[in-house]
Amino acid sequence: MVSPRFLIGLALSFVMLLGIAPTVAFAAAAGGDHAHGDHIGHANADKEMENPAEIKASLAIWSLVVFLILMAILWKFAWGPIVAGLEKREAGIAENIASAERAAGDAKRMIADYEAKLAGAADQVRAMLDEARRDAEHTKEEIIAEAKSAAGVEHERQMRELRTATDQALKALSETFADQAVALAGRIIQEKLNAKDHDRLVKEAVAKFAQSPSMN
């Protein structure tokens, strides 16, 4: 796709050509009319005029002078400050790189520090947890032991009371039983035994009863 600007440029240059060409042709034709073929402005020419390799001392010296003055001006006002500026910039960039590297090193060290600290913290937490677990275990065992001993004591007490109660009951029972037996035996024996035999028999029976251990 040809851009419109290009087309306009082309059209303009063509129009210019159309405008100029007849002038050129006319001028050339007019020039041709000259009697001696002598162009105005070309008179007195020596053979150097059309020599493309001509060296004009005045232009050469002028060129040298212009160049040297330009160089002197630029040296003072442009190249010097530019070189200084470039060096300053290069130094600045080098400094920036160095400080960035320093910062990166610092950051790396800090990360290592924090990682170590984190690892330490985890260890600490583990230790704390372990300790807590140990404490808890210990407390649990203490409580259990206490409970066990308390239960044992209670049990003991209850057993003692039970034994006491049993003994009392047995005693009461044996007394009642003896009385009943005596009464019963009395009634049976009243008919066959006298009082002497009666007492002896009772005493023997009671002694035997008291000797026998509790069976409860």
Binding site: V66, L74, W79, P81, L86
Partner: peptide
């Protein structure tokens, strides 16, 4: 001559451009 004037023109343009450029970067700025 024409070339003498043109050389001066070239020198003036160059001097103008680079003295301004020097003003911009002499401090180390870009």
């Amino acid at each position: 001559s024409k070339f003498m004037i043109l050389e001066l023109v070239a020198a003036a343009i160059i001097a103008f451009i680079f003295i301004r450029l020097a003003g911009m970067i002499r401090t180390g700025e870009r």
